[in-house]
Structure formats: C-alpha cells, structure tokens
C-alpha cells in the first residue's frame, strides 16, 4: 500500500493542521517544542561485533555495529587509524525505503553522522596506529535504521557513538614486521562524545527531535553535532525551506542543551 502521508499533494493540508496545533503551544504527540522523546540505549547486543548498540528514540530504532580490522593507513596519514561510517535505511524501517544502493537521503544522513564523529576528532586515531605506514586499525561503523518514526539521523549518530564507546579491540604485539593479536582487549580511544541533535522548522516554529509526521511537513531540518565543551562540530541544513538568521543560534542552543541530556545517558554506559 502506498504511504499517503508522504504524497506531496497532501503535505500542505497536513502542514496546516499541524501548524494550527503548534500555534496553541503543543505538538501532535503532546510534547513541548524543546522536548526530546524518550531515548533508550542498549549496548553489546551482538557478540561477534567489536561493539554494538541499539538506540530507540520513541518508535525510531537504529542499530550500529563496530568491526575493527587491521589494514593499511591512507598515504597522507601513515600514523593514523581509519574510520569508516555507513548508514543503511533498511526496507524494514519504512515502506518508502527500498533495498539497493543508497539514495541521496541515505548518503546524506550517513555523511552527517560521519562528519559529526570525524570533525570532532572524537577518536584519537594516532592511537590506532600499529605499524607506522603499514598497519593501522580500520574501524568500520555500520548503522542500520530499523524502524522509522522520524529523526533517524540522531538515532544513528547516538547508536554509532554508543557502539564506539563500548567497543573492544584486541591488544597487539609487534614482532619486527609481524603483528600478533593478543587475547586481551582494550577500548577504542575516544576523547569526545559528539551528539547530533536535529531540530525541525515548521512554519515559524522550531521543534526538537521531529517525529515522522513532523518531518513530513517540516520546511527544514537542521542537525547540529555538539561536544561537551559547547563546540559544534558539524551542521547540516536539510530540506528545501529557509532559515532566518537568528534561527542558527536558537538551534545551536537547543542542540547543545539536548546534547547534554543525551551525553548523560551515554555516561551511564561506563
């Protein structure tokens, strides 16, 4: 069955309804504008992965798996490990997702998560070097969006972070040119906790953590990834609407505030 909620002709009608509601100060699901849905984080759910996590934001579900392999460094960074992030929108998650090569939305979301982790320098990649110029740890973070009720980006970013924070990689012994993997393990050296927070603009209203029905009618979504220190390490505006200049700082303040709350959930993972 076609999902009529995403049919373009219906969007203005739905937006009108939602705007009427927002003008009374409430959202469809009863939340305040700056209220995030309940976030649940479970880690180490797949034994064969070096790290894994499942994140639920309301009914949105994303799973991240970390696999670490010894590989070659990039020529321009011979002493640094490599991070590879990818996101797949599973057909399980929504009737509008299809199997096959990622479309522009999947590519964009996966690059938002990737940038948040990379640009924040969350992973101390120099500590992932095993044999300079020859062998480094390559950290693959593969994210699956499993159920879509809006805001897959945040769920994916938080899942990736939780999986990385709890991942274990083997300790190694270097004997000449040979690398021996030991039984003992260690964590991935993480120095930052970059948390993406998405804010949607519907009409003149900014709402944090948009649900699917809010996303469908939103003019614009902005994802900002912030760190504990207040530094913002990635921004992405998505969607064909526009922002007013003061929105930028308003969104930053929301993202930083909500990022703090989510970071405190992550701290409980140990």
């Amino acid at each position: 069955m076609a999902d009529l909620s995403t049919v373009e002709e219906f969007v203005p009608i739905q937006q009108k309804e939602l705007l009427a509601l927002l003008s009374t100060g409430v959202r469809e699901d009863g939340r305040k504008f700056d209220e995030y849905r309940k976030v649940e984080i479970q880690t180490s759910i797949y034994e064969k992965a070096n790290g894994s996590a499942m994140v639920k934001i309301g009914n949105t579900v994303a799973v991240a798996g970390v696999k670490a392999e010894l590989g070659e460094p990039f020529p321009d960074t011979p002493n640094e490990g490599v991070l590879t992030v990818s996101l797949e929108l599973l057909p399980h998650a929504s009737p509008s997702f299809e199997p096959g090569p990622p479309d522009e939305n999947a590519v964009e979301m996966s690059r938002i998560v990737d940038r948040g982790l990379r640009e924040s320098k969350a992973i101390k990649t120099s500590e992932l070097c095993v044999l300079p110029g020859k062998k480094v740890w390559v950290i693959y973070v593969d994210i699956y969006a499993m159920d879509h009720d809006g805001n897959i980006v945040d769920a994916s970013g938080i899942a990736a972070l939780a999986a990385l924070l709890t991942a274990k990689i083997p300790e190694v012994k270097v004997e000449g040119e040979d690398v021996v993997l030991l039984e003992s393990t260690k964590g991935i050296p993480m120095v930052e906790r970059p948390v993406p927070v998405t804010v949607a603009k519907i009409g003149d209203y900014l709402v944090v953590d948009p649900s699917l029905s809010e996303e469908n009618v939103a003019d614009v979504r902005v994802t900002m990834t912030t760190l504990e220190s207040g530094i913002v390490s990635s921004i992405q505006k998505s969607g064909s609407g526009t922002l007013e200049e003061p929105d930028v700082l308003k969104i930053y303040d929301l993202a930083y505030e909500k990022g703090k709350e989510i970071r405190s959930l992550l701290a409980k993972l140990g």
């Binding site: 640009e119 207040g230 530094i231 913002v232 921004i235 992405q236 700082l249």
Partner: peptide, 9 residues
C-alpha cells in the same frame, strides 16, 4: 548551511 570542523557558539 553546513559545517565541517569545530566552532564555538
């Protein structure tokens, strides 16, 4: 609006 990198408020 996009950002790569680290900026304070």
């Amino acid at each position: 609006l996009q950002l790569n990198g680290r900026l304070t408020r």
